[in-house]
Amino acid sequence: MAGRTDTTFGGARLDVSWSQIRRYCYDGVTYLVYGLAVLFFLFPVLWVISLSLRTEGAVYTSLELLPSNPSLDSYREVLDSGLLRWMRNTLFVAVLSVTGILLVTTPAAYGFSRFRFRGRRSLLLAVLGFQMISPIVIVLPLYDIMRTLGLTESHTGLILLYIGLQIPFSLWLLKGYFDTIPTELDKAARIDGCNRLQTLRYVLLRPVMPGIAVVAIFNFVLTWSEFVMAYTMLSPGGEDLYTLSMGIYVFDNQLATQWTNIAAAAVIGIVPIVIFFVALQRYFVRGLTDGAVKG
């Protein structure tokens, strides 16, 4: 009797330790994955930062990430030669584009979520369909249109263009958010005396805020980084109009082998937007995982 109990105990203990070993293995593999991922995704940025802090002569020699006598000269140089201005332009374009996108898509998302009308489904699918058309495919006619409208070489034109290009995705995402809010809220608001404008403003806007945040963050990052449209529309307009991406690209072509300066420019192109995103990525990821975006 006692012997049997012991064996069972032994067997059980063996089981536990096996599954524990297996678990440790999985944990180990997971940490390995984290380590490799961080190395692969972080190292290039760290390296460019390191380069940007060196003196022109120190770029060829050492592999240390922390240069021996760091200098901010390259930053001073590139900021003076236009980068600051381009950054301001980019900020201006991005902020106004995001504002415009929200002003246009929020009502439309509300409309698609709250009205049932003939052709609604087809219209929604058509909007989604435009998601499949990359902007690069229509860059030529867009250039033509903007030229005809006299909107090339202007930030206004670029902003309008960004709004137009970003509506489909933003609309879908926001509509998904509105759909998660029960229509009883609308009804309660109606009975409390709200018309639809007031319902949207006072009752629905706050609950869809997480969705609006996702759309805003996403579009800010996108318009901040955008290159093709800016390059195509603004290039002839002179350096004063450049956005950061295109400025840095042009810069790179001019500077040829001044690597510390190029690196400094790249760092300026990376760091502010990454800080912005890292600070807000919680809202972004939460917004995406909350289930409003259906797989």
């Binding site: 995704f41 990376i270 990454v274």
Partner: peptide, 16 residues
Amino acid sequence: VVLSAWIVPGIIIGLV
């Protein structure tokens, strides 16, 4: 970290 790589403007990724 991985998401940050996605945020970097494409043109600058090319440069980096």
